[in-house]
Every structure is written in structure tokens, then in C-alpha cells.
Design a protein around this nucleic acid. Structure first.
Length: 156
DNA sequence: TAGGCCATCTGGTCCT
DNA sequence: AGGACCAGATGGCCTA
């Protein structure tokens, strides 16, 4: 009963209403940190000074896993497993960072595409990633139930 | 000012 | 060996 089309639509509407999306944030415009350039030769460091910080910090030494910048997961993240440290140099670390940025960029592109697919009111606020996922779940449930209802009502 | 959201860095793990 | 994926940590921005 909770998954009837009416219930789903009601849930979707209440969900959307609950999110209080009637205020328009400046986030709809591209923030500097979102202006990911696909051209690695562009002067992106001006937008991402932290990248330059990393370069300055790492310029003179090799980055070794387990070294000072190691965080919580390091040696005690997965107890019981003996692990060899994978030694990478600055160039490899920076290349990995670039790949990770591109990966996250493509992930966000997918989220943007999903945002365009789910129905929303004339929102002034962009859906967050978690809200996009939740709304998509509700929307898919609603459409599924609608299809089932139509197939039951259609003459055999 | 606290909390939510996000971008980024980072190191561990899996896979080719 | 190296790339992809993942998740923790961190810091910035924004809103209530």
C-alpha cells in the first residue's frame, strides 16, 4: 500500500516540499572549485592554491605511504593484513591526484544528468547529491508502480 | 556559529 | 606496475 502510485507521488511531493527548495543559492553558478579544466596546461593553480601548496610541500621529497601526511587509515586502517608500502614519487602522486579529480568530475557529471532526469518544481536550489539519489529512488518507484497499474488496467 | 555539502588530497585495495 | 575505485581527513563556502 505504501508503494501505490498515489502514495509514491505523495511521498515525492512531501519529500520535495520538505527539502525546502524555494531559496536560490548562488551555488547554481559555477563555483571556482567546480571550474574543473580538462586542459592540464591551463593555469588552474590560480583557482586551486592548495594544489600549489602540495607541489611546494612535496617538491623536495618523495611521498611515501605512511609518511607524515598519512591519515587515519594508514597502518591501522585494516588490521591483520601485512602490507607492503607502495612507494610513489611526486610525479606519480600528482598524476594520481589529476586522475582522481577527473574521476570525481565525471561522477558529478553523472549526478548533473540525473538531476535533469528527476522531476522537480521550479527549484531555485540545486539538489544535493544525496537528495538527488533519494528523489530518484522515489521517482523510479512511482514510475514503476504506474507502469504496473497501467498493465493491470489495460485489456488483455 | 554549527552543521551540511562539496572539492581535493591521500593511501589502501582491487584489477588488468 | 600502474590505473581505478574507495573511503577517511581536511578545509572552504553557505545557510539557518
Amino acid at each position: 500500500a505504501a508503494h501505490s502510485p498515489a502514495a509514491c507521488l505523495s511521498a515525492a511531493c512531501s519529500f520535495v516540499t520538505d527539502m525546502n527548495l524555494m531559496e536560490f543559492p548562488q551555488r547554481c553558478t559555477l563555483e571556482p572549485m567546480q571550474q574543473v579544466d580538462n586542459d592540464p596546461s591551463s593555469p588552474s593553480d590560480q583557482l586551486r592554491p592548495w594544489s600549489r601548496d602540495l607541489q611546494d610541500e612535496a617538491r623536495t621529497e618523495l611521498l611515501v605511504m605512511g609518511a607524515p601526511r598519512c591519515y587515519s587509515r594508514g597502518a591501522h586502517g585494516h588490521p591483520g593484513k601485512s602490507k607492503r608500502r607502495r612507494i610513489i614519487n611526486v610525479v606519480q602522486r600528482q598524476a594520481a591526484n589529476v586522475r582522481e579529480r577527473k574521476r570525481m568530475f565525471s561522477l558529478n557529471e553523472a549526478f548533473d544528468e540525473l538531476r535533469r532526469k528527476v522531476p522537480t518544481f521550479a527549484y531555485e536550489k540545486r539538489l544535493s547529491r544525496i537528495d538527488t539519489l533519494r528523489l530518484a529512488i522515489v521517482y523510479i518507484s512511482f514510475m514503476t508502480d504506474l507502469l504496473e497499474q497501467n498493465s493491470q488496467n489495460s485489456p488483455a
